[in-house]
Amino acid sequence: MLSIEIKVEALHAWYGNDEVLHGIDLAIEPRSVTAIIGPSGCGKSTFIRCLNRLHETNPGARVAGHVWVGGEDVYRMDPIDVRRTIGMVFQRPNPFPTMSIFDNVALGLKFAGVKDRRRLRARVEESLAMAALWDEVKDRLHQPAMSLSGGQQQRLCIARALAVEPRVLLMDEPTSALDPISTMRIEELVQNLKQTYTIVIVTHNMQQAARIADQTAFFLDGHLIEVGPTSKVFTKPDDKRTEDYVSGRFG
């Protein structure tokens, strides 16, 4: 796999006058899992929020630099197209509380103009199955999304993101609010999904990165310190700071 799915060049980001990313360069292969690790406040969440242009929706937030996804410059596309090409799962499960399970998954499709009921239903089933949730909810698709457990809600959010058939799936600490069993299921899911999607996952849990990522990037204070195959970053890092972090000496 020599092709490049996501290419980031000299990416800077600001909150007001605070520069939180100082020029990030990174390349990501298609159908791989890239873990972003680093201590709190190192800019890892901001980084993935720049990939789908969500960062700029914060008041006072600004971005400079380039991001290409599948060869297209994200910052020259319409943000709505960008976000349809790049799905996102958030730290806390955020299903839309006023909607049913079905409507949560179907909403993105409705935005995209899919009106045909049969096609909607087929696609909702497919997405829920991909998110390993179908068997648990198939008999109660029209119950409120808030009736699900936390882990189920997070898988619902994954299904919601997958329904619009993105190329890339961004995950912002998707298991930090979940119990160990739900966490394990999501990790298994990530392993399956990478056969179809390119996944970028932010995590503060280094074991998780080691378990699921092909490539790991270590961020510190808004700089990308080191990036490489996961096994190398965890066993033979080039940078002293990476070594200190992965061996638990700080952070």
Partner: peptide, 11 residues
């Protein structure tokens, strides 16, 4: 399952 097959059919 082929991704992105359906979106292209949207007007």
């Amino acid at each position: 399952m082929q991704p992105r097959d359906m979106m292209q059919t949207v007007h």
